[in-house]
């Protein structure tokens, strides 16, 4: 598939006025024009192909939003290359704008004081849609996102979930080929989240919309993304599939063993001894956990070792969560002061 977005050595430095502490600190801050340089994005490389759904992940302040703003054309990079569909987005914003859609979860593009439908009318004219196209698309989104019940209500009276659905429709009304979603599920309840995920997956699958998604909700990532780009402190730490990410950063699986009554976990641990590779964690009572590296020993071997020595009533195997991966990745950070 052809490359749609290309970033090479992409860099963004911000300059912040240096602040002084203590007496007259505020005055000094005002007078001395000294700046601290903040490296929000520091040499990022990645590409996104046409039709992909990529998760762009990282802790708070990692540089995700800054990258998105450079991809959309809001921010001009300090250095490096950013190309969307062959052109630099910031150089020709208005042309770029015609084929991108943007949702910033913490902000709304809807007209606060007016009925929701008024925002759509404006967008219809802004993107120069024909009346027929506009009607057809709006009707489509009214169905898909169930906007009907609050279409005529002022945006300020909508619930967060309703507003987000409105914002999604607003971002997609002109049928963009690329959709940037910056934390689209933030603050939503479980039902609204599911609905949002279904919609995103459908847009990607049915309309072939290329989607770049940032989120802190790892369920979003597991449900939606085949590929993730993980950044921290402005640099790419990982770029690849979710499966490989887990295999690399969370190779451990855990076998949970329920022992027959009267048999304590401590005793079982004693019986198993050092023969079983992996960490044996003996809880109080009849539950035993064995954490092992999936690429060094198979689950089969461990299970037969356990069942041959102890009376077992139940077994379950716990796969690593993406959250564990994140913890490992976050834990490796050198803490910046």
């Amino acid at each position: 598939m052809p490359t749609l977005i290309r970033a090479e050595g992409l860099t963004k430095y911000y300059r912040r006025p240096r602040r002084y502490e203590g007496a007259f600190g505020g005055l000094r801050t005002l007078i001395t024009r000294q700046y601290d340089e903040v490296r929000a994005v520091d040499g990022v490389d990645f590409t996104v192909s046409d039709g992909e759904l990529v998760g762009y992940l990282g802790p708070n302040g990692a540089g995700k939003s800054t990258t998105i703003k450079m991809m959309t054309g809001v921010l001009v990079p300090t250095g490096g290359l950013i190309e969307v569909d062959g052109t630099a987005p910031w150089r020709d914003r208005e042309k770029n704008a015609m084929h991108i859609g943007v949702v910033f979860g913490q902000r709304s593009q809807l007209w606060w004081d007016l009925p929701l439908v008024d925002s759509f009318t404006l967008l219809g004219k802004m993107y120069r849609m024909s009346e027929a196209d506009y009607r057809r698309r709006l009707d489509g989104f009214i169905d898909l996102l169930d906007l009907g019940p609050f279409l005529d209500r002022p945006v300020r009276q909508l619930s967060l979930g309703q507003r987000m659905r409105g914002d999604l429709a607003a971002a997609m009304l002109h049928e963009p080929s690329i959709l940037y979603l910056d934390e689209p599920t933030i603050g939503l309840d479980a039902v609204a989240r599911d609905r949002m995920r279904d919609f995103i997956a459908e847009m990607n699958r049915e309309s072939g919309t290329t989607i770049v998604l940032t989120t802190h909700d790892l369920v979003d990532v597991e449900a939606l993304c085949n590929r993730v780009v993980f950044i921290d402190k402005g640099r790419v730490l990982y770029d690849g599939s979710v499966v490989d990410l887990k295999a690399t950063y969370a190779p451990h699986r855990t076998l949970v063993v329920q022992l027959a009554s009267g048999f304590t976990a401590a005793r079982a641990a004693e019986l198993l001894g050092p023969e079983v590779p992996g960490d044996v964690i003996a809880d109080e009572g009849p539950t035993l956990r064995i954490r092992f590296e999936a690429n060094r020993i198979s689950a089969q071997e461990i299970i037969s070792a356990v069942t041959s020595r102890c009376p077992v009533t139940d077994l379950s195997l716990v796969e690593p969560e993406l959250e564990d991966v994140m913890r490992t990745l976050y834990g490796n950070r050198t803490i910046a002061v």
Binding site: G73, V102, F104, R107, Q109, R128
Partner: peptide, 14 residues
Amino acid sequence: REGRIAFDILRPAG
């Protein structure tokens, strides 16, 4: 202040 200006900059109109 609220950073919503990004939306208006990202319109196909000045």
